[in-house]
Simulated scan of single mutants.
Amino acid sequence: MTKSNDIVVYGATGYTGRLVVDHLARFGERHRWAIAGRDERKLQDLASAVKAAHGYEPPIFVASAEDRSSLAKMCERSGVVVACAGPFVRMGEPVVEACIDAGSDYVDITGEPAFVERIITRHHDRAEQAGVLVVPCCGFDSIPADLGVWFVMNALGKNGHATAETFVHTNWDVSGGTWQTMMEMAGHGDPLHPPSFPTPIGASSRTSVGKARPHFEPDVAGWVVPMPTIDPAVVLRSAAMLGTYGADFTYSFYARFGSLPKAALRGAALGAIFGLARVGPARRILSRVKPSGAGANEEQRRTGFFRVTTVARASGEKVVGRVSGGDKYVETGAMAGEAASLLALERATLPRKGGVLTPAVAFGGALVRRLEDRGIRFEIVRRTKEER
């Protein structure tokens, strides 16, 4: 069947889905894109709003993870699916399966380790054989860290043993969708335990997680605390698959705060939330704090920011690089939208043709260039020699 749409945004009426739609409406003039989700009335309202603001009315697919035939119809008619409907551990896998069956590429905005590990284990080989690119974590989780490390390691250009540390500084508010995902993650294991993914077959680099500890970090002028997010697992999978970060690569990931009390307070609050959320009745109560679809207002989006700094060392040389941008949710819309646009317009130029891949492995510098064109900055801050 002919794919009448280059891109479809699945989960388009959610908070982050709307931000992806807004990005495509402003910058997706070179391709035809559609919207999809469970609620036809909400989709119609969104399509009308897009037409009123931008003069383009996106086609609509009513589709849900519970209705496999609706997903099949959506994927059969779309070249790239941008999945924005979570929690992904419950609702994501049927979309991946439908994409592989239909020969449609896939990107998403997940930050859920259990989901990504599952689709790597169950679907990497099938996607590779089908020539379908499945690229999770194409939002704030984990493009700034993954492409930021790729950018810095390319600048470092050393073999042998290399280390890298990433420090994230942002406003730490979360959307309703992120909050619901946090609750879901707490119900599927220990979210405070750093995740890991299966080692790729034929990996040419040894990779490991560094022994991270809270400390004052001069390179970001603040206190940093280890963060058990999905980012280290994504970065280490990139290192193993690419084999260009050094034969032996160690990585650590931190959140940056302005003072030690702030760092301690945030860490304690996160531990308390996740600890409570592992208990069913408490999790149900906490889930009501931020319902799905809730998010920042216009002023909060306008003043939001992120700075993701990576410090890499090898062979007596140190390189500090930074990825920076505006509100992390707005920029997630740009990241996912540009990843999908890259697949729609420039897929033939990409080095890998199929499999469950990381953003760095699937896209590398091609996505860096597109994101820079949209105002997300990638820069080398400084390069110094260190005593050995």
Results as ranks from 00 to 15, higher is better:
Asp101Ile: 07
Val289Glu: 13
Thr13Leu: 06
Arg283Glu: 12
Arg278Met: 08
Arg284Leu: 11
His124Asn: 15
Ile119Cys: 14
Arg301Phe: 01
Val168Gln: 03
Gly187Gln: 12
Arg32Pro: 03
Arg284Thr: 08
Leu286Gly: 00
Gly139Lys: 08
Arg30Met: 10
Thr16Leu: 01
Thr332Val: 00
Pro261Glu: 12
Met1Phe: 02
Thr309Lys: 05
Thr13Met: 05
Ser64Arg: 10
Phe88Val: 00
Arg370Met: 12
Gly275Lys: 00
Glu112Pro: 01
Cys138Glu: 02
Ala127Gln: 13
Ile35Phe: 09
Cys99Ala: 15
Asp219Ile: 03
Pro232Leu: 04
Lys51Phe: 10
Gly111Leu: 00
Arg383Asp: 00
Thr244Gly: 10
His31Lys: 08
Leu260Glu: 09
Gly139Val: 01
Glu317Asp: 12
Ala12Leu: 15
Ala362Cys: 14
Ser324Pro: 07
Gly55Asp: 10
Val168Ser: 05
Val89His: 08
Glu317Asn: 04
Gln129Ile: 04
Asp190His: 06
Phe27Glu: 07
Pro261Thr: 08
Lys353Asn: 04
Lys211Gln: 13
Pro59Val: 01
Met182Leu: 14
Met91Ala: 11
Ala130Lys: 06
Leu192Lys: 04
Pro94Val: 00
Phe140Lys: 00
Ser70Val: 02
Ser238Val: 01
Gly271Pro: 15
Arg18Ala: 11
Arg369His: 12
Ala63Ser: 07
Asp101Leu: 06
Ile60Ser: 05
Gly131Val: 02
Leu367Ser: 05
Glu317Val: 08
Lys211Met: 11
His193Met: 10
Leu350Gln: 03
Leu156Asp: 02
Met153Gly: 01
Phe167Asp: 07
Asp22Cys: 06
Gly222Met: 01
Ala296Arg: 02
Arg322Ser: 13
Thr349Lys: 05
Arg90Cys: 08
Val89Ile: 15
Asp190Trp: 01
Thr16Ala: 12
Asp219Cys: 15
Leu343Thr: 06
Arg369Pro: 06
Glu40His: 12
Ala114Ile: 14
Tyr254Ala: 01
Lys73Pro: 02
Val319Cys: 04
Ala127Met: 13
Asp101Glu: 13
